[in-house]
Structure formats: C-alpha cells, structure tokens
Amino acid sequence: MTLADSLSRPTRRRRPKRRSQWKGLLYIAPAMVLVIMFFILPVLFTFWMSLHKWPLLGVPRFIGLNNYIRMFSDTRFYSALGFTAYYTVIITIAIFALAFPLAIFVERQRKMVGVYRTAIFMPVVVGLASASLLWVWFANVDSGFLNPLLAWLGIVDLKTNFFASFDSAFFIVCLMVVWKVAGFTMIILLTGLQAIPTELGEAARIDGANRWKRFFYVTLPLMRKTMALSLILSVTGSILAFDQFYIMTAGGPQNKMISVVYYIFNQSFVSFNLGYGAAMSLALLVILVLISIFQLWLLRVGEERA
C-alpha cells in the first residue's frame, strides 16, 4: 500500500498539498461530526454527570464521588452484576454447545447445505425484540404452543406456567436466545473451519488419528482466533442483555432477572436518578473496555503462535 503510493506519486500531477488536505478532511467531516456529537461527547458527558445528583427536571447538583460510593454499597447493583455474569456464562456455553456441531454439520459442500444454512440463520436477521415477543407468546401457558407440544411429548404438565419460577423462565429466555443467535455463531465458526487447509486433516488421518483426535489436536488449535472472536462477541452481547428480560419476564419472578443494563435503565429512566445511572454506565463501560482489551490480547496471542 505505502509502497504503491510512493511509486505512483511522482507520475501524478502535483497539486497544492494543502488543498488536498482540506478536501480529505471535508470528506470525512460528516462522519466525524456525528461520532463526536453522539459518541465522544456522550462518553465524556457520562463522566461529568456521574459526579452530580442529576434529576430529570431541576438543577443538577455537584456531589463528587457520592454516586460511586452509593454504587459500591448498592446490593441491588451487585445482584444485577451477579445475575448478568450468571446469564453470560450459561448462555455462552449453550450457544457454543449448539453452534459448534451446527458449523461442522454445514461445513462440507453437500446437497441442500445452502438451504440448511439459510434456515438455521433466519432467526438472526429478525430483531431480539421480535424474537422475545414471539417466544413469550410461544411459552404462554394459556395461548402458547410450547405447553401443548411439551405435554404431548410427556415432558411437562399442560398447565405449567413457565414464567412463574426463576429456573423455567430463565430456561425459556435461554432457549429463545440460543434459537436466535446460534446461526450467527455458526457462520463465524464456519469461516474458521473453512480456513483450515484440508491437507492437514488428511495428513492426520494418514498418520492414524481418529475423528475425535483430529478434532481436538488439529481443528480446535487452528480455530483459536475464530473461537476467541465469537466468544468475545457472545460475551459482550450477553453482558449488555436487556430486551429479552424487559419484554419476556419484566425482570422475572421476584425481580431476580434484572440485568445490569436493565438496572441502569430503571435507575435512569424509571426513578430518574440520571447521575447515578451515569456512574453505573461508566462502571459497565470500564468492564466492557477491559474485556475488549482482553479480546485484543487473546487475538494477538493467537496470531503469534499461528
């Protein structure tokens, strides 16, 4: 790239450098204005707000670090963090447990494989809100589809209300998310699988490695980078979960399903403690940036060894 640039420059008619500088900036100006206005500024403003008692109406009052002190002693914030971590672990395992076999299933070019891939991928393109609404009806005890189906299979009683207890409600939410997201993770993993040269598998087979050995000693190590990427996408996505809990369980039985984003939403836009919401947002942001840095580190480690 740079080499090509420096080679082609002498042949090009030299134009006043300053003018072209301005032109370049002009082209990127709209994007920069939007990013500064609706991203950089809000991030800085979050910090500023977090130092204030900031009601929806009326004058904000500077209170220093009080919001942070409150946060560190807020048991509901801790339980939101705990629930989010629990959800993240369970859902990530569930998604991978399904998506990996799916990726292997659709890897080889066979008849109809395109159709199966597309079918599995379809739930990915609808919104999480649509999927939540669909499944909350599906799992409804009086009007849904799941009760008759599972009763017919003899798994549960026809009159089981899934949303009455934490475990069954949590199971339904996870079922919905896995249904919605597995296709996405499958495609990401598929790109990793297809990047592995087939000769490696062949060579291992000739050396006498069986199918499982080939998977564990050839396929998995070569997929580290893809695995890291899809893992991080799944983890960050789950930490930010909101729609499914808001729509499907409204916080769940005994408010046990309040995720971090949900709690921030409640504090900011239901109780209108905007300053406190900002402090917790910043905590969430720090957690996620740390995870992103960890991701970059993980990816780099993968690169060096590959």
């Binding site: 809000p42 991030v43 942001l285 992103s292």
Partner: peptide
C-alpha cells in the same frame, strides 16, 4: 488521518447502552 480512523473504529468497543443517559440529555 490514521488517528481519526482508529477513533471511529474504536467506538465499536464502547457499547451505546452505556451512553444512553447522556445521549438522552444531549
């Protein structure tokens, strides 16, 4: 040029869920 490009891409790291409150006020 490179710094500005990285700045735009780096916003991917920051979830918009965490800047909703100030966005609302802005």
């Amino acid at each position: 040029k490179n710094a500005l490009f990285v700045l735009i891409i780096a916003t991917l790291m920051i979830p918009f869920q965490s800047i909703l409150t100030p966005l609302f006020i802005i």
